[in-house]
Nucleic acid binder design. Structure first.
Lengths: 226, 226
DNA sequence: GTCGTGATGATAGCATTACTATCTATTTAG
DNA sequence: CTAAATAGATAGTAATGCTATCATCACGAC
């Protein structure tokens, strides 16, 4: 399955200048940037430090990405694509719409615990980056233009799949797309709160996030418009 | 009511070096930073530009705030305090717990449209900043220390109030705090999506955000634990 | 009045960041 | 064997994020 994913998970929109998947240096840039951003946080991460960690020159990195914001978009896009692929996998061959929806919500909201790295990529580090930094990919003044470029396509595709699962259970749901994006984004935020601001959540919250979202989605889906 | 709020809305935790409310320059720093951050976005906003806009020196601003991140925490904290105050006001003297909860959810999720500025502060600009930048106040590597300092107390107090309203309606709700923080944070995110990534939301989403959250909260509150 | 204190303004300086440009060495494909 | 692509090395620039110092000016206490 890992091999299969590796073939299918990729960022389609050219947020890069040169495809990092295509060269050895490119792949090392991705690999090391995930480790470094996870370690330092996005603010203190710089191309200079990345170059030092790679033993190469800063200018070589600029041949692949315009700046660190584009690199972040690339990494987050990769993450959402991976989640989408996993979602499709986890919900394949399920006939019953409600069962499919529940499995889908769990697939999306469960944390990444795979010990093994994914190819050259440290998946758990990427997950931590997604939790802490993903909102910075779109919460900018450039969001409208970048959206037009298709930079956030991975996120949208994932949300659309979940929305369709909601609609399969409840075709007249009043706001299926909003519910879907709430679950996808909210599950990340709740992870962050449970980890760093636990006083904002409930006892044992960390281990119950997926359950809570399943409850929430089915409550919403089974409650008629007032 | 404005006057009353002005007296009560204030940031209690000292995220500042010197209280900006106490001096003329301090108030002008707050006033102008709101306008500038709204205009430029947090990334392109600098103390240098703020100083230029104020006609003062950069060093004068550093006497009030350590850096722009602390200034952001201050502004966002101020915003949450204002929201809390408004929530208390909007839900005062309501006996029925369900009615109170509905009013509370609406109070929190409704956008700021007050035309008039609030004292010297442009409330609508501050609201736009809260929508676009509030997550950057806590999504950092320093979150744990800053949380200990009490930097996010305003957010917590607001969430706690909503949580208590949920519990008043449904004392056995399985995750009242998570639901509350989902509503408070989620309403900001949904505003952003409706404005900038409308393809993630539903038709007419912008004008229905408050309704959607009311539906969601009552669906959750009225659905027993499975 | 004047003395001291606190608030401000002006200038300078420094390390880091975010790039851009250029030149050379190496590999690789035709 | 030559041309193109790739990478590494070096240099340089403007802006950023500070820190430090010194002069000025208003003020209330005495």
């Amino acid at each position: 399955m890992q091999r299969l994913m590796q073939m299918n998970v990729q960022v389609s929109e050219p947020v890069y200048l040169k495809d990092p998947q295509g060269t050895d240096l490119g792949r090392r840039i991705i690999e090391h940037s995930v480790v470094l951003i996870d370690e330092l946080g996005l603010e203190k991460f710089t191309f200079g430090k990345l170059a030092a960690s790679l033993g190469t020159a800063e200018s070589s990195i600029y041949r692949y990405f315009d700046n660190k914001h584009r690199l972040l978009i690339y990494l987050i896009g990769w993450y959402w694509s991976w989640r989408e692929y996993k979602l499709v996998f986890d919900t394949a061959n399920i006939g019953d719409a409600a069962t499919k929806l529940e499995r889908g919500v769990r697939s999306i909201t469960e944390p990444v615990t795979d010990k093994g790295s994914f190819g050259y990529l440290d998946l758990r580090a990427l997950y931590r980056i997604a939790v802490s930094e993903s909102s910075k990919a779109y919460m900018t003044k450039e969001v409208d233009e970048e959206h037009k470029e298709g930079c956030f396509g991975g996120f949208k595709r994932l949300c659309d799949r979940l929305r369709d699962m909601v609609l399969a259970v409840s075709p007249k749901h009043p706001y299926p797309a909003a519910l879907a994006s709430q679950v996808v984004d909210g599950s990340m935020v709740q992870r962050f709160f449970a980890e760093h601001l636990p006083s904002l959540t409930d006892k044992g919250a960390k281990s119950r996030i997926a359950d809570n979202f399943v409850h929430l989605v089915f409550a919403s889906v089974n409650t008629p418009k007032r």
